[in-house]
Write a protein that binds this DNA or RNA. Structure first.
Lengths: 205, 205
DNA sequence: GGCGAACCTCTACCTTAGTATAGGTGACTA
DNA sequence: TAGTCACCTATACTAAGGTAGAGGTTCGCC
């Protein structure tokens, strides 16, 4: 019987999903409410086949939590689950070695299939994901940004002024202005606030 | 047998919660994936006792969806459910007449209790909610904002310029500047971008 | 009636943000 | 070698954002 560890800090979601998986199919589901609890659980006696991590969970810190879990337990398969993440994050997760990405928009039945798929050793990625509401033609708008522009955008997302960004990146304020201007143009937005909101909406930072 | 309508656009969450409610207790659960579908369903033959709306659902538009549902079906009890909303939103929802607020952080068992409570005619609000990670001393910073300042903040959250906000609110640009200045002071932030990010983080708009 | 609060407006001023153009560097490549 | 690209800097300018002080209106409240 495959043994699954589910980490989600939403009690309701965690309880009902694990109850569902436990009854519908022959899964042995353990559930915890934080990344730390998951890691601790995996260091215990029971060995797990699959760890499912909620992307929004407290302490995950974006994809850092995913990488930490994979690093500390290289033999266990790890899947990321999310209700809000989009193609950008999903792609990043997969390219960093996740064994699967499970959007919460999936039906319960599809989720079970996805889990079985992953347990059989495949890597699961939802095909038609992120194209519906995501008008981005093929790949992300953000991929057009250069390294420096991306860093600038990151600072923008904390609400820093040009002067502050200049200090943070060790360049002149004029340079920051240039980067900001390019970012606005590439993202096709009118001002820094919109750029920050856009990046936040896509959960880039 | 009480009849419940659950609206959530996360298939996984919706399926598992409704399955759980359907088995654990004697609830007759119907589930849909959008606000419009919920409203349509309620206009049909079956009469529902309780409508549970997911706050993050597509088309909800903050508390607008809640108000619309209450207005169109005044006899049906309406509860808001959310995984990310904090005390601010919860309070607002209750003060606008919602019959309950169900955070997804609740355990499945507590959720069932809450639902029973609401069905019995009470209004449910989680007691110790939103105090843990919310450093706000007692009440929300946002409650200090006047009506106009709140409207200004809302426009800010779309990334509009002062001039555009002025047009939207039918006032002079100088007035908008005044409102913006007051908002920044009350929220204790340095600029409009930070104000927008802060409001977005707390999921006010 | 007097008071305060929220609202709107104005003038004036200074700071920050964003645009335009031009020029210089190093790295990589046809 | 010439070309391209990301990067940094510079000057100069316009537009937008934010501050300060003063004044006026409406409304509810003691």
């Amino acid at each position: 019987m495959p043994s699954i560890l589910l980490a989600d800090d939403h009690g309701l979601v965690r309880d009902t999903i694990s109850a569902y998986l436990g009854t519908i199919d022959d899964f042995d589901v353990t559930s915890v409410s934080s990344l730390d609890a998951a890691l601790k659980e995996m260091s215990g006696l029971t060995s797990f086949d699959l760890l499912i991590l909620d992307y929004q969970m407290h302490g995950m810190n974006g994809l850092e939590g995913l990488e930490r879990a994979m690093k500390e337990h290289p033999t266990v398969k790890v899947a990321l689950m999310s209700g809000i993440a989009n193609r950008d994050v999903a792609n990043m997760a997969m390219s960093r070695g996740a064994d699967g990405f499970i959007p919460k928009s999936l039906t319960a039945a599809s989720t079970v299939n996805a889990i079985k798929f992953i347990l059989s050793g495949e890597r699961y990625f939802p095909f038609d994901f992120g194209n519906a509401q995501n008008e981005t033609p093929r790949d992300s708008v953000f991929s057009e940004l250069s390294e420096r522009e991306l860093q600038t955008l990151e600072q923008l997302c904390i609400g820093l002024s040009n002067k502050e960004i200049a200090r943070a990146l060790n360049v002149q304020e004029v340079t920051v202005k240039l980067h900001v201007k390019n970012v606005l143009a590439k993202l096709k937005v009118a001002n820094r606030t919109q750029a920050a909101l856009m990046a936040k909406e896509r959960h880039l930072f």
